[in-house]
Amino acid sequence: MDVRNLLNFNKNKVMDKTSNDEFISTLKQIKEGDRLLREDFLSRYTPFMLKAASKVAGRYVDIKNSDEYSIALSAFNEAIDCYDMTKNYNFLLFSEHVIRKRLIDHMRKNKRNKELPFSYFENDDEILENYTIFGSNIGFEDVEVREDIIEYKEALADFDITFMDLIANAPKHEDSRKLCIRIAKVLADDEELFRLLQKYKNIPRSELKKKAKVHSRTIGNHRKYIIALCLILRSNLELSKSYLSLTEKGGS
């Protein structure tokens, strides 16, 4: 297994077709006017709406006495009504986008009544096109994974590393990948080395080569890859940690 597989795990994920068909069938019935089913659906996805609203508001959003929740609920209903059943994009990601837009509109309207909302300038078609990379896999857990990947991308950016860098710099040979993982573990487990990494945004090469017992050139040749692995080890990305474990054991 290489970095390209790690970054595209959503494409490779085996879907539960029955579960997906049931979800689409439920949406279809709701859009056709089943009010009781809509109420049940809204109740079931209340935690999702609250989390989406909290992320935009930057604070905890509760159901009671909360304008943000009311707007999120309205936006979720809007997403149901506007969702195109013929397109292959993720409904929950689409609804999260609608919630975000409506809340941003609300917050900006309260601050500057004459200012056009940020969402006015967004291209919905381009955004929905991007959602198709997730296929029609509509589980709530996939939104969680998406948020984790976004956080990881931001962490990499602090070190001037992109996902394309990882694809380009990933070692081709299994032995090299295993060696990089071992070096990254030394870097992640040593608090002083990790502190230096964070402070200078670079690997403390002379110190690390002694502790990992490797040549300095090895670290230099795989610098970005080792940093990326180290950040995974220090994160809560369980799927990515599983990738490291499989790679160490020789998995593909």
Rank of each mutant, 00 (worst) to 15 (best):
Asn130Ser: 13
Tyr83His: 12
His106Ile: 14
Tyr200Lys: 08
Phe94Asn: 04
Asn90Val: 00
Gln198Pro: 10
Pro204Glu: 09
Val98Cys: 01
Asn90Thr: 05
Pro204Leu: 06
Arg205Tyr: 00
Glu191Gln: 10
Val143Ser: 07
Tyr152Ser: 05
Cys180Thr: 05
Glu78Ile: 06
Lys87Cys: 07
Val98Trp: 03
Cys82Arg: 06
Tyr120Met: 14
Val186Gly: 02
Ala170His: 05
Glu174Cys: 03
Arg108Glu: 15
Ile203Thr: 06
Ser176Thr: 11
Phe118His: 11
Gln198Glu: 15
Glu115Pro: 04
Ile133Leu: 13
Pro171Gly: 07
Leu166Ser: 05
Lys201Asp: 00
Phe94Ser: 04
Asn123Gly: 02
Asn113Ser: 11
Ile181Lys: 03
Ser136Arg: 12
Val186Thr: 14
Ile150Val: 13
Val98Phe: 02
Asn169Val: 04
Tyr120Thr: 14
Arg108Tyr: 15
Ser206Arg: 09
Phe94Leu: 02
Glu141Val: 10
Ile183Cys: 00
Val143Ala: 08
Ile80Tyr: 04
Leu116Pro: 09
Asp158Tyr: 05
Leu93Val: 00
Glu191Cys: 07
Asp81Gln: 08
Arg146Trp: 09
Ser95Lys: 15
Arg108Lys: 14
Tyr152Cys: 07
Glu151Lys: 08
Glu192Trp: 02
Lys111Ser: 10
Glu126Tyr: 06
Ala79Ile: 02
Arg195Phe: 09
Cys82Pro: 03
Leu103Pro: 04
Ser119Thr: 15
Lys199Asn: 00
Leu196Met: 09
Leu103Glu: 01
Lys172Met: 03
Asp189Met: 08
Ala170Trp: 02
Glu78Leu: 06
Ile183Val: 13
Val98His: 08
Asp158His: 03
Leu197Pro: 08
Tyr83Met: 09
Leu103Trp: 13
Phe140Pro: 00
Phe194Gln: 01
Glu141Pro: 01
Tyr120Gly: 07
Ser119Lys: 10
Arg146His: 07
Thr132Ser: 14
Ile149Asn: 11
Tyr120Leu: 09
Ile133His: 10
Ile203Trp: 03
Ala188Val: 01
Ala168Ile: 04
Leu166Arg: 03
Asn169Cys: 08
Gln198Ser: 08
Glu115Asn: 11
Phe194Val: 05
Tyr131Gly: 12
Ile183Lys: 02
Leu92His: 07
Asn137His: 11
Tyr89Glu: 01
Ser206Thr: 12
Tyr120Ala: 09
Leu197Arg: 08
Asn110Ala: 14
Ala170Val: 05
Lys101Tyr: 02
Leu166His: 03
Ser206Gly: 02
Asp81Leu: 09
Glu144Arg: 10
Lys111Arg: 15
Ile80Met: 08
Leu103Val: 10
Asn110Ser: 12
Asp165Tyr: 05
Val98Glu: 10
Phe159Trp: 11
Asn137Arg: 12
Met164Cys: 06
Met107Phe: 11
Ala170Asp: 06
Met85Thr: 04
Asp175Ser: 02
Asn123Arg: 09
